[in-house]
Design a protein around this nucleic acid. Structure first.
Length: 291
DNA sequence: TTCCAGGGGTAGA
DNA sequence: TCTACCCATGGA
């Protein structure tokens, strides 16, 4: 199965757009430049690892340890298209950065696509797991979540757990097994409301829904505050906020302020000129230099 | 031991 | 709206 990519697309740069590729069930082989992901299959109790790598100007999908019908492969290709933001129209972003001395190369290279999970549910869970802890702890929480509740593929790899699987556990499980600390009840509550059909995260991808409505929905999730909601907005293709966290702040200090701390207002001012694309500009300005 | 990580909820002003 | 305080975890 072959996946066509837009002009200037780079799998490597998209994979390294942020840290998501380090979180299970993603995998990245830097030597082969191959991104893999373990998908939950439509059939119950089944999962399958699929990888993508560059091939003749596009991407080629490969199955690992299983067989998929052409229809199912087509579905995985659609999901990869979403995960690699292939459908994102970046013309407005490139127009903005083209005139900027420091960022003009982003437009030349066609950069600006962020790696996402196949579901908004998964991105939200992972984002909650990034709050107020080290990146190492985020990785281990997500890894334990996948190991404990994800569907195994028959070769030891596991998919990301479904909302139903996550809702079937209790808060004690999240505390004792996942080691999610005070986030335990937030994770359970979110999974329960999605599994019960009270919350529809996938609808947040709908471009016709106003940003304010989506932001309000995100902030209604316990465990999602200013940073997490803004970060999620980026993963939903809306880049009009910076989603400042300790990582972006420290990178900004190093890159633009001689290593000295400054106020968030100063950082906001710096990226104001990128308008509705500022959230993307900051990522590719201070994090996207050397994949 | 304290501090801090890719913060957020809550109460009180 | 702003502030103080609390929240689990794990590495430095």
């Amino acid at each position: 199965m072959y996946l066509k990519t837009p002009e200037g697309f780079s799998l490597e740069r998209t994979v390294h757009s942020h840290g998501w590729y380090q979180l299970a069930p993603f995998g990245y082989d830097a030597e082969k430049r191959e991104l893999s992901y373990v998908f939950q299959r439509a059939a119950a109790h089944s999962s399958l690892k699929i990888s993508v790598a560059g091939y003749r100007g596009g991407l080629r999908l490969k199955t690992h340890g299983g067989v998929a019908s052409r229809d199912e492969l087509g579905r995985f290709a659609e999901l990869f298209s979403r995960m690699l933001s292939l459908g994102q129209d970046l013309r407005g972003f490139h127009d903005r950065v083209r005139l900027d001395n420091r960022l003009a190369s982003i437009a030349l290279r066609g950069e600006g696509r962020m790696l996402r999970s196949p579901t908004v549910f998964e991105d939200t869970v992972k984002t909650i797991c990034t709050t107020n802890c080290s990146w190492a702890l985020t990785k281990s929480m997500v890894s334990r979540l996948v190991s404990a509740l994800g569907q195994e593929d028959g070769r030891g790899s596991r998919a990301f757990p479904t909302p139903e699987a996550m809702a079937s556990a209790d808060a004690g499980f999240y505390r004792d097994e996942i080691r999610a600390g005070y986030r335990s009840e937030y994770l359970l509550e979110f999974a329960e409301s999605v599994a019960a059909g009270e919350l529809h995260p996938e609808s947040w991808l709908d471009p016709s829904v106003p940003s304010d409505t989506i932001r309000k929905n995100l902030l209604s999730v316990k465990g999602v505050g200013k940073y997490a909601s803004e970060s999620m907005m980026k993963l939903l293709g809306r880049f009009d906020s910076l989603a400042l966290d300790s990582y972006l702040r420290s990178e900004f200090y190093k890159t633009h302020n001689k290593g000295r701390p400054c106020s968030d207002e100063r950082i906001e001012e710096h990226y104001d000129r990128f308008g509705d694309w500022k959230g993307l500009a900051i990522w590719f300005d201070i994090c996207g230099e050397d994949p």
